[in-house]
Structures are given as structure tokens and as C-alpha cells.
């Protein structure tokens, strides 16, 4: 399994650098504006009074007072939308391709003709995915904590790591969800599309549930959305361990289900199609 992890990680090297540097730059571009926002808080607050209440409702209990705190600023500028959606795409594309990519390209036959069990292959690739995600998150974190030193943000590097942990748990969930879907759906593209839809739908549902005018149906439905348990910048005040561990446990269940399905089905020859449900026994 060591070789599988090493090889998969080596192949993810470009992605780690690409996504990681992009997120690092996003942080570097966002953080220096913090002091300017704090200085202009009163003027901005005045301006916000003219925003439509429906639009403001999308931001829930948003207030300028909360926005100018480091937690609020990092949440709104970085974690709430950009980080989860951008890195969600990475997690979904990588998760859906962990096995299906090689299968669709006809490479899986040769790999599994070697003394490598399907479980070890999947576990090794998952470990590499976890390591790659952590690598990207470390680069992203550096993109915040280093420029933060040149602002008035009064946070420790450890405190800034907490929302990244919450983000990590979400990425694991969407990555393993995409992996599971790749075991069920006929192609990697279908799996990535379905998981991508789940991510966007979850995001919209959580945003809608913040609006005071929506009914209980939406609010109750949002409880099922994984992003409800994403703490964003609020994690700086304390990571909700229950949510964090719950998301990781759910990811582990999805990974175990994927392994179970992978163990029980035929390996397709490259280019072979068909719904895989019929191949499960």
C-alpha cells in the first residue's frame, strides 16, 4: 500500500501545487484589506442600510460589527463561499477519479493484475487524497497567517487553523461522496456532476435557511445539508468537535461503502459502459 500512496501522491503533486498556490494567493489578496475595512466600517455600515433586505437576509445575522471582527471578515471573505466552493470542486474531482479515472482509461486491469487488493488500492488512494487535501490546506493557511502578521488581526496561527479543520472535514465528506457515486454511476463525469450538484444544492439550502422569512420545511431540510455543519470563520472561536468528528465519521462510512461496492463488482474494460448497479452481487 506504501507504493500506492507514494505513487498517487506523486500524481497529485501538480494538483496540490495548483490548488494550493491559488488558495494561497486568494488569502494573500484578501487579508491586507482587513485594516482598510475596519477603518471604513462606519461608512460601509451606512451603505449597507440601502441594500435590499432580501439580499441582506442571505447573509443571516450579518452586521458590520461582526464583519469587522477577524472571524467575521475571514468567514465572509474567505471561508463562507470561496474556500468551500473552490476546494469542494477539487475534492469532488479528485474523489470521483480516485478509482474511476484509471478504470475508464483501462489502466485498472493492469494495476489489479498485480498483488494489490482492491481494498488496499482504494485505501491507499484515499490516504493520498487526504494527504493532498491537507497539503492544499496548509498552503491556503499560510496564505492567511503570513499576511495576517502585517495587519491588526489579533489571531494566533493555531486559531486560524481551526476553520481549516472544519473545511477539511467538509472536503473529506464531499470527496468520499464523489468516490461512492463513482462506484454507483456509469462514469466519473456523472459522479462528479452529481456530487457537484449536491455541493451547490447544499450551499443554496443553507443560505436560504438563514433567511428569516423561510418556513420550517427549508430550515429542517437544511439540517440534512452537510454545509450546515461547516463552521467557516466561526470555528476560530472554538471548533465544534461534535460536528467535526461527525463529518469525518460520515466520510469514513462513505469510504467504507465505496470499498464494499468496489470489492463486489466487475472491473470494466476501458470504454465499457453500463450502469454498475447490475454488476454488484
Amino acid at each position: 500500500m506504501k507504493e500506492i500512496v507514494r505513487f498517487t501522491l506523486a500524481r497529485l503533486r501538480g494538483q496540490i501545487l495548483g490548488w494550493g498556490i491559488a488558495m494561497l494567493l486568494l488569502g494573500v489578496m484578501s487579508i491586507p484589506f482587513y485594516d482598510g475595512i475596519v477603518d471604513q466600517a462606519e461608512a460601509l455600515d451606512e451603505m449597507l442600510k440601502y441594500f435590499p433586505p432580501e439580499l441582506m437576509a442571505l447573509f443571516g445575522d450579518f452586521s458590520m460589527a461582526s464583519y469587522v471582527t477577524p472571524e467575521g471578515y475571514l468567514g465572509l471573505q474567505y471561508f463562507d463561499m470561496m474556500a468551500i466552493l473552490i476546494l469542494g470542486v477539487f475534492a469532488i474531482l479528485t474523489g470521483s477519479g480516485l478509482i474511476a479515472s484509471d478504470e475508464e482509461n483501462g489502466r485498472l486491469d493492469l494495476i489489479l493484475a498485480h498483488p494489490v487488493s482492491r481494498t488496499a488500492l482504494l485505501a491507499g488512494r484515499l490516504l493520498a487524497f487526504v494527504a493532498a487535501t491537507l497539503g492544499i490546506l496548509v498552503l491556503s493557511w499560510l496564505g492567511i497567517v503570513v499576511p495576517m502578521e502585517f495587519t491588526s488581526m489579533d489571531l494566533t496561527w493555531g486559531e486560524v487553523a481551526l476553520p481549516f479543520l472544519s473545511l477539511f472535514a467538509e472536503l473529506m465528506l464531499f470527496g468520499t461522496m464523489a468516490l461512492l457515486l463513482s462506484m454507483l454511476l456509469p462514469s466519473r463525469r456523472a459522479a462528479a456532476s452529481a456530487a457537484g450538484f449536491a455541493l451547490i444544492a447544499s450551499y443554496v439550502l443553507v443560505a436560504l435557511a438563514r433567511m428569516p422569512s423561510v418556513g420550517d420545511v427549508v430550515k429542517n431540510a437544511a439540517r440534512l445539508s452537510p454545509l450546515t455543519y461547516y463552521q467557516s470563520g466561526q470555528a476560530i472561536d472554538g471548533l465544534n468537535l461534535g460536528w467535526f468528528l461527525g463529518l469525518l465519521a460520515l466520510s469514513a462510512i462513505l469510504a467504507a461503502l465505496s470499498a464494499w461496492l468496489f470489492q463486489r463488482r466487475d472491473i470494466r474494460v476501458g470504454g465499457e459502459g453500463g450502469w454498475r448497479l447490475s454488476l454488484i452481487r
Binding site: N105, G106, R107, D109, L110, A113, H114, P115, V116
Partner: peptide, 12 residues
């Protein structure tokens, strides 16, 4: 598989 060498019809 440990004791087998396999050449697929088309190497990918």
C-alpha cells in the same frame, strides 16, 4: 496475482 504475469490485449 503474485505468481502470475499478465499482458492485457492492449496495454494502457
Amino acid at each position: 496475482r503474485a505468481r502470475t504475469g499478465y499482458l492485457p490485449g492492449e496495454l494502457r
